[in-house]
Design a protein around this nucleic acid. Sequence first.
RNA 1: GCGGUCGUAGCUCAGUUGGUUAGAGCGCAGGAUUGUGGCUCCUGAGGUCGUAGGUUCGAUCCCCACCGACCGUACCA
Length: 499
Amino acid sequence: MANKADKVKARLPRGLVDRHAADIRATDKMLAAIREVYERYGFDPVETPMLEYTDALGKFLPDQDRPNEGVFSLQDDDEQWMSLRYDLTAPLARHVAENFNEIQLPYRTYRAGYVFRNEKPGPGRFRQFMQFDADTVGAPSVAADAEMCMMMADVMEALGIARGDYIVRVNNRKVLDGVMEAIGVTDEGQKLAILRAIDKLDKFGVEGVKLLLGEGRKDESGDFTKGAGLNDNQIDRVLKLVAPVVGTRLELQYFMSGAVHGSDIGLEGVGELDQIGELIEAAKYSDRIRIDPSVVRGLEYYTGPVFEVELTAEIPNEKGEIVRFGSVGGGGRYDGLVSRFRGQPVPATGFSIGVSRLMTALKNLGKLGEGDVLAPVLVTVMDGDMEAMGKYQDFTQKLRAAGIRAEMYQGNWKKFGNQLKYADRRGAPLAIIQGGDERANGEVQIKDLIEGKRLSGEIESNEEWRASRPAQVTVKEEDLAAKVREMLDQQAQDRAGGA
RNA sequence: GCGGUCGUAGCUCAGUUGGUUAGAGCGCAGGAUUGUGGCUCCUGAGGUCGUAGGUUCGAUCCCCACCGACCGUACCA
């Protein structure tokens, strides 16, 4: 045993979490619900490893021979850099490119898994988290993008989020590029600054974005963020496109066309968005999916339509404060990602659901069915001789054979009180008890711990509490499993009635 | 990354203008009770006061650095 001085300190690296039973079960349920939707849409699963060669992830800075910050990287024994994946899209592109001849396009596929980002963690932001993606590779038409949006909406509802408590917003990168072209912005750095500013619309409002598009903005801590440096005319034109617009699809189209006037790429984007709008209307999804020119969605590889699903319901956080939860998933068209590995163009579109983040939201909304796994029935140990122990083991197996979660007490059985205390804290619904007297009669006692707890409020003295043996019934050994089942069913009914 | 607030028992927090032995509640363990959870009572374990330097006769307290948490901001493929 290590002495005190050289004990290793047990500590979790920052930004990572251990997951407990309730979390894991809830995640499993969520994944199953999402998978069901993807399967219904005709998507098939595929899985890739967590590690990839770093260049396949595309994260080398041009002037460095080390991988970019933000990814966890390590060097293989042949000195090649490998990295933990930071999303599921780049590995999919690699997989498709590598198996191009075997894969039938359009390839409709989904996968779930952990991704890793070496960034500053925050509330609801971790360095390892789970995503659940769906993509269609080899489909150039906006119909594939429209399908993605509809599938995202269906996923939200499959998770129990009511229509109106979420919204899928769609934009097109070409529209944003178009307006920047139209106002004469050519510098890449300035373009990025503009996109970042637009992305902050829901955080800082129109006024904040205005500052960020122009000179810059000072935050509460006194820190100054340099702006994109646009002049007033340019700012007006960007804000006109991006600030909230209401209207019919045709009005919106007219309006956006005006904003990108003079840019061919912009007009193309407006046309694509309009087609998506038409498809969505035809499929009766207009109340769930909205064209919104302010969606930016990442900065790098998207080439066309981009979309984002956002929770709009008022969600209390752990402290009971109402917070805007924001985006829980998103995606878009990335026509360049696969072709990076191959000479020919390979169009693709897809999206990603942030499982960990969504789960926090569902938990705070109270829509996570956590408590529905019942703790096991506890078979207590009264006597330690082999005959008695054999009986207890037999009871336990009979319960299991009847499909009932059951365990035999494995701690120090000599303190019987501790066994019931254990059962109580574990949340066991029933305890099975057989001492020498019962054994002689071929009987066994079943104690209803839930009913017993209720009765405890009416009993004052400990002597009476112990002597009365509340909520206990005696049955023949051979009737044990049937009676346990009956009592569990009764408890389930009481729970349903009480809830 | 930048700016701010903070770090005392498993948890929530007192406390010391720099002074001997750092406390409470809750929780945990044992007992009152060798075959019955809760309640009540008794007893106990658990702290190098985030870590490492510095100032000082003396530091949990003052100074510096680092680590970590939280808030804002930047970045987020």
